[in-house]
């Protein structure tokens, strides 16, 4: 039996919920895996585990320590979902000054928070499952790969590839600010297939051609400011340099 744990740092816990959403498949998974740690669903939680799935991102010093402990007590660490993999939506707070962000708490938080970062900023990570929430199919691929002792690889192509396979009409052609061309595939173009432009929740892939994407958007009459906003939404941390470059244009 392979022991696993599902751990949660600051986040919406949608990825924990998504794990439970494996439903019938989860009962199959339990034939090969023991869930030793899952605070959302279990009373008794222990370490070490063979595989630690971590959702969210540390926003306090306590959580950084928790992450370090999980790393120490696991053989394989998986960043579960976009917050853990890229910093995700919480990373948006890094676009503003601390002073501004603190105003919500009457400028008086009990102690200094930590900037939301991808978890590999703190510890080595073996695998990343992208998406907000992550894709159940990719999780099953990863879980199966581990059972079969095979390697797991993330897709290094754009959402557009999958969108074209589903024969969707291109949303850029309709004038929408779609992030598909620079966003990592693996979701089977879920949002465009439901009529919504890709928001980039899976973050950028390795060879994304930002310049071409930005030029296309600008030619469509979309402003630089709007592009910066769209690029920042899920991927401020990995796209910081692109965003800085954009600001100078």
């Amino acid at each position: 039996m392979i022991s696993i744990g599902i751990f949660s740092l600051s986040c919406c816990e949608g990825c924990s919920v998504q794990f439970l959403n494996l439903e019938g498949k989860l009962l199959e998974v339990l034939k090969y895996y023991n869930i030793e740690n899952f605070r959302l669903a279990k009373e008794l939680n222990s370490l070490p585990v063979d595989i630690a799935f971590v959702e969210g991102t540390p926003t306090t010093a306590e959580e950084v320590k928790k992450l370090l402990k999980i790393r120490r007590d696991s053989n394989v660490l998986v960043a579960l979902g976009t917050c853990a993999a890229t910093g995700g939506v919480p990373g948006l707070v890094n676009t503003m000054s601390k002073r501004e962000a603190m105003k919500v708490y009457d400028s008086n938080p009990p102690y200094m928070p930590v900037d939301p970062k991808p978890i590999d900023y703190y510890v080595p990570v073996e695998h990343k499952l992208y998406g907000c929430p992550f894709s159940k199919d990719e999780l099953m691929e990863l879980i199966t790969a581990v059972i079969m002792n095979k390697s797991f690889k993330n897709r290094e192509s754009s959402v557009c590839v999958e969108c074209a396979l589903r024969e969707n009409a291109c949303l850029l052609d309709k004038g929408e600010l779609c992030m598909g061309p620079v966003t990592r595939a693996g979701c089977r173009a879920l949002c465009p297939s439901n009529g919504a432009p890709c928001r980039g929740c899976r973050g950028p892939y390795e060879d994304a051609n930002y310049k071409a994407h930005i030029r296309t958007l600008m030619d469509m009459g979309i402003t630089r400011e709007e592009i910066i906003e769209a690029y920042s939404m899920f991927s401020y941390e990995p796209l910081k340099e692109v965003i800085a470059w954009l600001k100078e244009q």
Binding site: S10, A101, Y105, P113, E229
Partner: peptide, 19 residues
């Protein structure tokens, strides 16, 4: 409650209504 802060009400400021 000891969940970390995520500052939604801060970073939602100055965002387009669409998002």
């Amino acid at each position: 409650v000891h969940e970390g802060s995520r500052y939604f009400e801060s970073f939602m400021l100055n965002r387009s209504y669409k998002y």
